[in-house]
Amino acid sequence: MIVLENVSKVFPAKNNEVIAVDKANIHVKKGEIHGVIGYSGAGKSTLIRCVNLLERPTSGKIYINGEEITSIPPHKLDNARRKIGMIFQGFNLLKTATVYDNIAIPLKLIGIDKAEVKARTEKYLEIVGLADKHQSYPSQLSGGQKQRVAIARALAQEPEILLSDEATSALDPETTESILDLLLKINEEFGITILLITHEMNVIQKICDYVYVLESGKIVEHGTTIDLFSNPQKPTTTKFLGTIAQRNLSPSLISQLNLTGSVQRLTFTGDIAGEPLLAEMSKRFAVVPNILAANIIELKNGVIGNLVVHVAGEKEEVENALLFIHEQGVGTEELEGQN
């Protein structure tokens, strides 16, 4: 549905070029929700603006539903763009127009007849839960309501793809949750493919099937959400995970606890997260597991449990116990700092 092949965007600068996006490869299948996460300045906004050619890539190809849109001349792009809706962090609503007109005006501008404009506007206001606000103005709405209007405006053109540019970053946590629920509803009921960018890991956690980690314009890691949450490979990914759940104890804290034996991070995924494997481990081997930290993360498509455990006992027994638990499908990683 959305394919980026070696897409780069380079901006000229006074003394040097600025590479905002560097050979990005993305493949979003129809009906999936993919997220691109990165810190400020990573190139996220430039990347997503390349998808609908608001920014034309310096090199590379972009395909939408099998059509290479990077080969379409600028004056013929309107039809291709109608397949792609977009919602923005700043809402981009007309301040002097009512909620109804913010949705209806773009439809009128592309030549949709009056009856169809009315039907679509009313339909999508109902879907986003704002049917009673049709005569309100943006200044009379909360941030979450403004974003719902923006989503309704994007949906009213009945796109196949929805792009989200930090759509929840200006909202409070409760409103963010409601907007994410709305995006999930839209994806499930209409089968709309969604590509979003964010710097909030909880957004990825809640709704994404697949995630790309962007750093200095490069995709440094990518995979299914459950794979990245359970086994991150890059420091940037690990830092982002640390914003929603404690996965480690610092080496200095482990050292202060004056622990002998092994301190391990154990990662449980899927059904294993509910199994009493530590109890079984202590029954089978002469070891004593002591939980130092724990959390469970609920993802769109699964559950991940993280435990930081001190396993006390003779070296051979500890090694055999960890081998046993690893064979049950539990990820194991020794943490630094123990004596």
Rank of each mutant, 00 (worst) to 15 (best):
I2S: 03
V3E: 15
L4W: 04
N6Y: 03
V10C: 06
F11K: 02
P12T: 01
K14C: 00
K14D: 14
K14W: 09
N15I: 09
A20I: 04
I26E: 11
V28P: 12
K29R: 15
K30Q: 15
Y39F: 14
G41C: 10
K44I: 05
K44W: 12
L47K: 09
I48V: 15
L54V: 15
K61A: 06
K61Q: 08
E67M: 11
I69L: 00
T70H: 06
S71E: 08
R81D: 05
R81A: 03
I84P: 06
I84N: 04
G85S: 07
Q89H: 15
L93Q: 04
Y100T: 04
L107I: 14
G111N: 09
E116L: 04
V117W: 05
A119D: 14
T121F: 13
K123H: 14
K123T: 12
L125W: 12
K133T: 03
K133Q: 07
H134E: 03
H134Y: 15
L141M: 11
S142H: 12
A152K: 02
L155H: 08
E160L: 08
A167R: 02
T168A: 02
S169F: 09
A170G: 13
A170C: 10
L171Y: 11
D172F: 05
P173V: 00
P173M: 03
P173W: 03
E174S: 06
E177H: 06
S178Y: 02
S178M: 05
L180Q: 03
L183R: 11
E189D: 15
H199E: 06
M201N: 07
N202L: 03
V203T: 11
I204Y: 05
Q205R: 15
K206S: 01
I207G: 05
C208G: 10
C208Y: 08
D209G: 04
Y210L: 01
Y210R: 12
Y210K: 07
Y212H: 14
V213Q: 10
E215R: 03
V220S: 06
T224D: 10
I226F: 09
S230F: 12
S230M: 09
P232K: 12
K234V: 08
P235G: 08
T238P: 00
T238K: 15
Q246L: 11
Q246D: 12
R247A: 10
P251K: 13
S252Y: 04
I254C: 01
L259F: 09
S262K: 15
S262E: 14
Q264E: 14
T269E: 12
I272E: 01
G274H: 13
G274W: 02
L278A: 00
M281A: 01
V288G: 00
P289W: 02
P289H: 10
L299D: 06
K300W: 01
N301L: 09
V303L: 13
N306Q: 11
L307H: 11
V311C: 05
A312Y: 03
E317W: 07
E319A: 12
E319K: 14
N320C: 08
L322K: 06
L323F: 05
L323Q: 11
F324T: 06
G329V: 03
G329N: 02
E336G: 04
Q338N: 08
